[in-house]
Design a protein around this nucleic acid. Sequence first.
RNA 1: GCGGGCGUGGCGGAAUGGCAGACGCACCGGACUUAAAAUCCGGUUCCCUUUUGGGAGUGCGGGUUCGACCCCCGCCGCCCGCACCA
Length: 858
Amino acid sequence: MARYNFKDIEPKWQAAWDQRGAFRVTEDVGRPKYYVLEMFPYPSGRLHVGHMRNYTIGDVLARFKRAQGFNVLHPMGWDAFGLPAENAARDNRVHPAKWTFENIATMRSQLKLMGLAYDWDREIATCAPEYYRHEQKFFLDFLNAGLAYRRESWVNWDPVENTVLANEQVIDGRGWRSGAPVERRLLNQWFLRITAFADELLEAIGRLDRWPDKVRLMQENWIGRSTGLRFRFTVEQSDGTPHSDVEVFSTRPDTLFGASFLALSPYHPLTARLAAESPSLQTFVEMCGRIGTSEEAIETAEKHGFDTGLVARHPLDSNRTVPVFVANFVLMEYGTGAIFGCPGHDQRDLDFARKYGLSVVPVVLPPDADAIGFTIGTEAYTGPGRMINSEFLNGLDVEAAKAAVCTRLEATGHGERIVQYRLRDWGVSRQRYWGCPVPVMYRADGTMVPVPEDQLPVLLPEDVDWDQPGNPLDTHPTWKFTTCPETGQPAVRETDTFDTFFESSWYFARFTSPHASARGFDRAAADYWLPVDQYIGGVEHAVLHLLYSRFFMRALKQCGYTDVEEPFAGLMTQGMVTHETFRDANGTWLYPEEVEERDGRLVKRRDERPVIVGRLEKMSKSKKNVVGLEQTVDTYGADTTRFMLLSDSPPDRDVEWSNAGIDGAWRFLNRVFRMVTESPIALPAVGTPCPEYLSEPAKTVRRQVHKTIVAITDDFQRFHLNKAVARVRELANALADLDGHADGAGWVLREGLETLVCLMAPMTPHVCEELWQALGHTDLLVDTPWPKPDVTLTAEERVTVAVQVNGKLRTTVSLPVDCDEANARTAAMNDPIVARTLQDRPIRKVIVVPNRIVNIVA
RNA sequence: GCGGGCGUGGCGGAAUGGCAGACGCACCGGACUUAAAAUCCGGUUCCCUUUUGGGAGUGCGGGUUCGACCCCCGCCGCCCGCACCA
């Protein structure tokens, strides 16, 4: 049986598209635009089949929209700054640039193998000075606009990677890449003021209606808006001498009469002052620093407190005081770094109070509880209710009590209502070489001076000594020494580089005009193309990259670069490609090709020892469950690989890569190939008009052809790509079953095959192009418009209607479409099976849903 | 702990108030072949029945409805995100 020769076909059509410039685009106001973007890859080495799902999904959409007449921008580039290049430099003495560009060359050729419809003229690499120089200008603009600032702050220090991590890069107290326990260090850091947009970023989430709910929710939680009262306690020494004021923040000011302690963060300024005179407090603070980063402590969340001996006077009752503690669970980074504890109505405060023997006074009575016997046991009550034990608040509900306390304390000048966010400003400083230099310098007296715009870009030095530990920019013999443009005196450059999320926060804008040299992007081009209509990538970027990009566009807007605020109108988060994992008896991971089946059991090819099959996991180099791209394309071709990645699972769920699956895809493409090239039914010439008479079987198939156009168009629009695959197969089955003797069969088969090829083209473009030619066409399929369904054909004349008796299916009847209820009812009642089932029971009711169902209730 | 998602044949999944299991994988049987591969045809949720047919069935328990995989209430299980955020 002949097999189609993808090895000739695929390069041939790739060259034809290339020569045609099929995917090169420019702005064209005469056509609707559509911007499809897949999250660009970090050039880490080689791609495997698991990486290709993302690009295949995007390619289907790009080709589909293009066929529909949209002016489609579909670019590709490289997120090229990052730590692995620097690690490679240290390990292998290869310059990060060389390593990166070699990887890019490899991965570009891999992508080209797949026939992806990219406009390669727009390719960018973020490590190129033509790219990162614009970030330095953005940064200076941000600085002017007050959106960038420098401050000394506690940072998460990764001791293995010798760098600072963003809060987002710390997972369970460990570095997201190294897995090493994170330490606290105080450093001067650059920040971008993302919190200035907190409310706007939060509010606009509601309008991102083509984003998954899950991602929107994650961003909402990340921003974490809460409203409450910030107010002041006066702290005194135990003898009543005033000591200082402490501000706290609370979302539950209604529970203020239930307060039984004040707690300060170990990093609160007052704690520092007290610790200076108290070695035991000093020891306590140091202990908090240690357990704060250990995984165990975070999981068990044991609460520790240190009684300072000070007391705080109650702001609503000057006769009352509560003790002041330093407690490990109070975060300096949120609110004011100090809280009042109300154990009755906050679980964490309750745990603390029980441990240190503090009073627990309930102040909110649950609606169904009895005021006399109500006490708090081991669980705090956080629900609604009426106030008790709270003087002037007694009897109010929780919301009214909140308002009353806020009003009272605002009136006395003790506090104010504020909005508080969980979101922190974005720390962008990294003590790394392979990133964009921060374009500022410092004079001898420490004054910061921005690098003048006419001195941009600040380029990375190329000669770097990788034998020295720490930041190569800092240890470079000459690079950082310069002169102040204002005074002419010696100055030193900032040796930090930007977090690499900086690059990915605007690359989608750069793609709209990648050769713009004056500014990062051409405003007219960006205004034409943005926002990205459909963005596709992994859910792991749900918060970081996507939130930073949303912020970045707003910051650029504020600096006059664009009017676009939301970079991504539509977002699809695709699932992973998984594969079985294999290990030998020692627990060492094995590659799939190291495993073979012997007598129904899996054994290691080399020594025939048994193999342990693990669970399905995301394809990754570390677990060795990867399938190479080249070997798959070499065996099956790009189209089969693409078809496999689209089959079976919906794009937002995981898909399992299996040999059986790819064989199935391969068989199907061969079958379609033979249906065209070895058709047993003679096909009329291209363009032959439809014969006047079509037999019923031919009409039926033709109807399915047009219905399939409607269905697949809808499937593509809604990302139901697995369903589109199923429908393509159904159509192929129907065409294969067409009776060649039926009148009009040849004509209908031609129409059906042409339609099938057009509908499959976004998924398997090379073989479809070949078949389009085999069908007698001389133009390129890639230039052929999306098929138009003839809706007069899709209407059925008769329809099969289900007949239920008491809601249970008994039979079906064939009825004319839209037949009236009385006739439907009669037809159903006259059916012998219905009559037998009913016997002589009286009929109580008949429900008729036209063209669907008749339900007889007896 | 909080938030979200998911649960359907041996497997991936389809059907989102109206014929459960489309389409595929796997498996079984048949044709072709010296044989195998490939290909083509047929079968395949479970139980009862020779058949016609009948019964059960979408994690479990209730409810709404003429009718529920689908909506509501309560459980169970798995997965993901956040996690001392006052």
